[in-house]
Design a protein around this nucleic acid. Structure first.
Lengths: 119, 119, 119, 119
DNA sequence: GTGGTCTAGACCACG
DNA sequence: GTGGTCTAGACCACG
């Protein structure tokens, strides 16, 4: 899986990586149980500090997306908890995006099409 | 229109205000041509720094949502440019949200329902 | 409130600080709404790195014990969520402690007395 | 006696095994004088490194819970020293657990009930 | 070899 | 002035 960092984004690097891994899990590109690169390997590959990658992995672990053990490094969990609900924060973000799209004259159907595509 | 600030949100205050005004425009609560409070009035009302509100207005102006003139303060533009497309940044955010919802076991229909509701 | 670090403990520094703040909140030594020292102040006072304190505050924030805002620094939350249950991890630890005490010939009553004292 | 390892726990494997053996001794599941499996047998059974089990046994021996001799392997001591007191470390841990429970709204009685159950 | 911890030091956005 | 982010580099326990 290829992870790209946008140096000019105001989203922190550790969060950009986190987001891309989450999207990779959702799309199936990262399968349940699949090994993630080691902290060092990913840091080296991306030219960033190990602490930054470490922070990403700790967040993903705490969110329940991955598991880490000292021996084997990090793996995608195969039994990710399904809350069945969208977080309030994401609802708020979604509302903002929909509002902006609406003002820009984007038809409701176009947004729904995107949702279906991303799902 | 009532604007609520969450002091403990990760979203900066100026952006929280900006987002709420944009959503107000989208929902029609803020009509085209409608006057916005002056920077000082809004800052006073919300108990925040005038610089913060000023930053919000500058962004809204630069994004094409409002017009400002020295005499009358700020007004909602009545001819907001309709690009017809969703920004790349918002697409990326939308994809992240949809991915997280999907992993959490939220049915596609629930997300679409939210989109329709917010639109 | 005085925080002491045991350099020889195998509990990480950020966790020692976290634990003492939690105990301070429980005992009432840190009142709801009370300001915590700034990250820099606490780091300076304890002779440790700001990153270490920052990590502590982020954990406390994520656990719902404190709130941070950019303006005022960190404060004890005044509406900490009450789950009403003991975490599985703490139950497991409690069981270990009780087992060790029992083997050491500590009467059940002595442990209960301690619990009452700490509560 | 069945020992379960959680590969993803923060508690090191050798300590997980140590804890379960101690709890086994406390509960009586492991009787005084009872033979423990050899290091190699236990390691093989659990699919872990012999060094890990060896470390566990060394700790248990040093703590006075077991005896080892080259001929017969390890046995539970039948005259474990009864200090009659809880170690400072365990007191500290107990205080942390009680504090967290209290903040979470767990009644004192629930904790005491657990203590009685585990004893 | 693996993740976890910590430091010293720097720069940043926010307000 | 505040917390947040990041780096370069180091050391550690675990297995």
């Amino acid at each position: 899986m290829i992870i790209k960092i946008d140096d000019y984004s105001d989203v922190p690097i550790y969060m950009q990586i986190r987001n891309q891994i989450v999207m990779g899990i959702s799309s199936g590109e990262l399968a349940p149980g699949e090994q993630l690169p080691t902290v060092r390997a990913l840091a080296l590959e991306m030219g960033i500090n190990t602490m930054t990658v470490s922070k990403t992995y700790q967040i993903l672990k705490q969110e329940g997306y991955i598991l880490t053990d000292r021996k084997n490094g990090a793996r995608v969990r195969d039994n990710i908890t399904k809350s069945g609900v969208i977080s309030e924060e994401n609802k708020s973000e979604l509302r903002r995006i929909v509002s902006e799209a609406r003002i820009s004259g984007v038809p409701k159907e176009d947004i729904i099409k995107l949702v279906k595509e991303y799902y």
